[in-house]
């Protein structure tokens, strides 16, 4: 019997959906502040904080994700914790 294999990049599909949803939500926030906020220095600071904060989080997440070899394939058995091989998929 052959074990069912699947590439790790399949995991990136739900991650991309979450990434897209949070990015859209972030832009909704920016749109609201830009359209309904008061014309003031504080509003500009908040908008810059939104962009800066979100880009910083994206950067950290990007670094974390880029350290993984997504072409690696795993078997269903390896999904069970502590039963698979301990070969690291982190490209470190």
């Amino acid at each position: 019997m052959t074990a069912f294999h699947f590439p790790l990049w399949y995991l990136l599909i739900p991650f991309s959906i979450v990434l897209l949803a949070t990015t859209v939500y972030m832009f909704f926030n920016i749109y609201h502040i830009a359209k309904f906020g008061m014309q003031s220095f504080g509003t500009t600071v908040v908008l810059l904080l939104y962009f800066g904060g979100y880009l910083a989080v994206l950067g950290v997440v990007g670094v974390m994700v880029s350290n993984i070899d997504w072409h690696h394939t795993v078997t269903v058995i390896e999904i069970l914790p502590f039963t698979g091989s301990s070969t690291s998929t982190f490209g470190l």
Partner: peptide
């Protein structure tokens, strides 16, 4: 260091942060 759970938890942490 598990081949599946390492990347999966990393992505979960990324989603959590976002």
């Amino acid at each position: 260091s598990q081949p599946f759970w390492g990347p999966a938890l990393t992505l979960l942490l990324g989603c959590y942060m976002l």
